[in-house]
């Protein structure tokens, strides 16, 4: 089991969607990068992603890795946020048959998994349908 440091250092990204961007290339990086892969600019500016987007592809995981075994089956998709940034995340609070490419979703704060019975609880973002 890893020490909590590994979880802890990703908190700004997982809790608050903190990213950074290259103002020269108008690219946003999530997770944040130390340099822009396009222009090698190292002066990247902090930014925060939007919390709404749409599903661009998805799957239903039925054979999960060990720490997710209590949760399967669950849906994982690639979400394109309104600011154009794409990220991978679970799609919850939705019947599998209702998930469609193009479906609008918004972020919710959820527990991703637990490190065994006695380890830390691992939180972060998931996505839920965002109707209307």
């Amino acid at each position: 089991m890893s020490t909590p440091s590994r979880y802890w250092r990703e908190i700004p990204q997982r809790y608050r969607l903190e990213a950074n961007k290259c103002n020269r290339c108008e690219l946003t990086f999530f997770p944040p990068r130390l340099l822009c892969p396009e222009c090698k600019n190292r002066k990247l500016e902090k930014s925060k992603l939007t919390e709404k987007g749409k599903v661009i592809t998805y799957t239903i995981i039925r054979v999960p890795p060990a720490q997710f075994s209590d949760q399967a089956p669950y849906a994982v998709g690639i979400i394109e946020l309104e600011d154009g940034v794409r990220l991978t995340g679970q799609i919850v609070d939705c019947a599998f048959e209702d998930i469609k490419i193009g479906m609008k979703v918004k972020l919710e704060f959820r527990k991703l998994f637990e490190e065994g019975h006695a380890g830390i609880l691992c939180y972060g973002y998931k996505f839920v349908p965002h109707g209307e």
């Binding site: 990204q13 995981i61 890795p65 995340g89 998931k126």
Partner: peptide, 8 residues
């Protein structure tokens, strides 16, 4: 960023 979300 993929494994943490339960992807396989």
């Amino acid at each position: 960023y993929e494994g943490y979300q339960g992807i396989t």
